[in-house]
Design a protein around this nucleic acid. Structure first.
Length: 288
DNA sequence: ATGCCATGCTCCGCATGA
C-alpha cells in the first residue's frame, strides 16, 4: 500500500515551475500585452528589462490583480528591470557589485535585480548594448562600459557559483553568441553584440560553469529573440538571439525544457524582443 | 556610412536602442 503514496508525495514536493525573460521596451506601453501573455497561465516568474520607468510608475496594481508580486529596480527614461512572480520570492539585491579596480563605485544605470525562490538564485539582467564600438578612432565609453559591466557580471556569477545552489542568470545579454544565432552574421561582425572583446567575456561565463540553456537543448537550431523595428526585420525574419538563460550546473541539472515564444512579437505594438522561457524541476529529475 | 522604427522627455527635435 505504501509505494503509490510515496510517488504522490514526491510529485507534491517537486513542482516544476517556469521562468521567462522578456525585454518589454517600456512597461507603460507594454503592460497590457505582458499581462495578456501572463494570463495564458504558463509563466510563474517573469524577468523584465527596459522598463523605461521609475519604480513609482510601474503598473503594480494590474500585476497584483493578475496574481503576481513584483520587485522593481527602475530608472527614469532608460533601462530598468523587474521580476513579477506568482510564487513567493525573496529580494536579494538590486545592482551588481563593483570590481576592486572600479574607481567610481557608483552606477546610476538600473540593469540588475536578483531574487531567490526556495534554493534557486535568480538574476534578471539587462546588459549594456555597447554601440558604437568606436568614437574618434578610439574604443567608445559605451563599449568600455559594456566590457566593465560584463566583468562585474562574471565576477558575481563566479561568486554565486561557490554557494552550491542552482543559479539562473537570465535576461537581455545583447550578445549574439554564434553565427547560428543570427540571420546574417557578416552584418554583425565587429558590432558590440558580436565583438571579440564581448564574446571573450561571454565565453568566460561558460568557463566559470554557466551553460546557455536554449543552445544546450537545441544544439543545431536557429531561432531568434529579437527583430529590429526597422527595415521589415520581423517580416523577413531578420532576427538575432540575444536573450539568454545562463545556468550553473545545479540549475542545468534541473532544466526540463526551454524555448522562445515568437507569438508576442507578431502582435500590434509589440516589443522588439519576444519572451524566452525555461522550465525547471525543483529537484534533480531521476531517470528511474 | 546611414536611414529605416519605436520610446521617453522636454517639448514638436533629440538621445537611445541593436
Amino acid at each position: 500500500m505504501q509505494p503509490p503514496l510515496v510517488a504522490v508525495e514526491h510529485l507534491l514536493r517537486s513542482d516544476p515551475f517556469t521562468i521567462a525573460t522578456w525585454n518589454v521596451n517600456s512597461i507603460k506601453v507594454r503592460a497590457e500585452a505582458v499581462l495578456e501573455w501572463l494570463k495564458q497561465g504558463q509563466c510563474d516568474i517573469l524577468l523584465m528589462q527596459e522598463l523605461k520607468s521609475i519604480d513609482e510608475n510601474f503598473p503594480l496594481d494590474a500585476f497584483h490583480a493578475a496574481g503576481y508580486e513584483v520587485h522593481v529596480h527602475g530608472q527614469k527614461t532608460y533601462n530598468g528591470v523587474a521580476i513579477a512572480s506568482r510564487l513567493p520570492l525573496t529580494l536579494r539585491q538590486k545592482g551588481l557589485p563593483f570590481l576592486d579596480s572600479d574607481s567610481d563605485k557608483d552606477d546610476p544605470q538600473a540593469r540588475y535585480i536578483e531574487v531567490e525562490y526556495k534554493q534557486f538564485i535568480i538574476g534578471c539582467l539587462y546588459l549594456p548594448n555597447g554601440n558604437p564600438v568606436m568614437t574618434d578612432g578610439n574604443l567608445s565609453e559605451k563599449f568600455h562600459y559594456k566590457c566593465r559591466w560584463m566583468d562585474r557580471l562574471n565576477q558575481h556569477a563566479a561568486a554565486l557559483n561557490m554557494l552550491n545552489r542552482p543559479v539562473i542568470l537570465a535576461g537581455d545579454y545583447n550578445i549574439i553568441p554564434d553565427a547560428k544565432d543570427c540571420y546574417d552574421i557578416n552584418a554583425w561582425q565587429g558590432d558590440a553584440l558580436h565583438h571579440p572583446d564581448t564574446l571573450k567575456r561571454w565565453r568566460q561565463l561558460s568557463y566559470s560553469g554557466y551553460t546557455d540553456a536554449w543552445r544546450a537543448l537545441h544544439p543545431a537550431k536557429t531561432a531568434y529573440s529579437f527583430w529590429d523595428y526597422q527595415g521589415g526585420a520581423w517580416q523577413k525574419d531578420n532576427g538575432i538571439r540575444i536573450d539568454h538563460f545562463m545556468l550553473n550546473a545545479e540549475a542545468a541539472d534541473r532544466l526540463l525544457d526551454t524555448d522562445i515564444d515568437k507569438t508576442p512579437r507578431g502582435k500590434d505594438r509589440a516589443s522588439d524582443h519576444t519572451p524566452v522561457w525555461c522550465r525547471f524541476s525543483e529537484n534533480i529529475p531521476s531517470s528511474d
